[in-house]
């Protein structure tokens, strides 16, 4: 028998610890797919993805209106958050004096730390009423209201990833641009933004992932009307909010239960793809400047 080697033993225990992350990810896939996929023995995949009628009492499960609503709130959120977040990232990396950074950075960290349910409660009154009054609607609980609150929630991630990308651009690029007589702004939008574009896109992609998966803030403000969304000023229901609202009444292992898990599979798979894509882009952005 070999000598007792504590180092090897500790190494093995720690290795077990480190595969936990992989095991958990695989378990999530196993349990979600296992609970959801049997739906397709009774309901066609295309009927599920592109059907627009969702009637659990008759076992009709078409999720198209939830999918469209989820993409609409995500798109709306990015439409607001990308220009604002990118500007703030440029501000922090290129323009801001130290004192301003010392105010804005902690503010963004705090914005990232505020729980989604708090944003929901804030939006439930303020944004919903603002939409109600501004657009003279019957109800302010709309896809627009959900987009606005989501845009606030994805700002921190867009800002921090794009700021990293812009700061990673070597000083030489800036000096070259200034040496040719370019102003700060010309340097920013002709040199820095193109050079950092991959990192910025990665930030937008991560923001997109957060927006499509968000539940609590959306469910409180979107109105939860299960109809095909015809615009931003109507109520709707997203994939995540439908799961949250209906799971309580679904019987375990019933078709309804399985259909709700399938509603979860859609953003899950989407977000996994986005996550791999964005980490590729981030590492490529860094490799370029090394």
């Amino acid at each position: 028998m070999g000598r007792f080697e504590p180092e090897k033993m500790v190494g093995r225990v720690l290795m077990l610890f480190s595969i936990t992350a992989v095991v958990v990810l695989l378990l999530i896939m196993l349990f979600i797919f296992n609970a959801g996929l049997p739906l397709f023995t009774k309901v066609g995949v295309l009927d599920f993805l592109f059907g627009t009628r969702w009637v659990p009492s008759k076992d009709v499960y078409g999720a198209f209106q939830f999918i469209v609503a989820a993409f609409m709130v995500t798109f709306g959120a990015l439409l607001i958050a990308v220009p604002l977040g990118l500007s703030c990232a440029i501000f922090l990396s290129e323009i801001a004096p130290r004192w301003a950074k010392n105010i804005v950075r902690p503010a963004i960290e705090l914005l990232a730390g505020i729980p989604s349910i708090i944003y929901g409660v804030f939006a439930l009154v303020i944004i919903v009423n603002a939409a109600h009054i501004t657009f003279n609607l019957a109800t302010g609980e709309t896809i627009l209201a959900a987009s606005i609150i989501l845009s606030i929630m994805v700002l921190p991630i867009i800002i921090s990833i794009s700021q990293d990308a812009i700061e990673a651009v070597p000083r030489l690029y800036r000096e070259g641009s200034y040496a040719m007589g370019a102003t700060d702004w010309q340097t920013i939008h002709r040199v820095l933004l193109p050079a950092a574009s991959q990192g910025i896109v990665a930030g937008v992609i991560l923001g997109m992932g957060r927006a499509i998966g968000e539940t609590m803030a959306v469910v409180l403000v979107i109105g939860n009307v299960e109809k095909f969304p015809t615009g931003f000023l109507v109520p709707g229901e997203t994939l995540t909010s439908a799961i949250l609202l209906e799971m309580g009444e679904a019987v375990v292992n019933s078709l309804h239960y399985r259909a709700l898990f399938c509603l979860g599979i859609v953003p899950f798979v989407f977000v996994l793809v986005l996550s791999v894509l964005s980490s590729r882009l981030i590492s490529r952005n860094h490799e370029r400047f090394e």
Binding site: I32, I243, G264
Partner: peptide
Amino acid sequence: DALNAVPSIVFGLFGLAL
């Protein structure tokens, strides 16, 4: 990284099933 990106409601479904 992938685990970090998983939507919170999916954790809810997972916790429910497991």
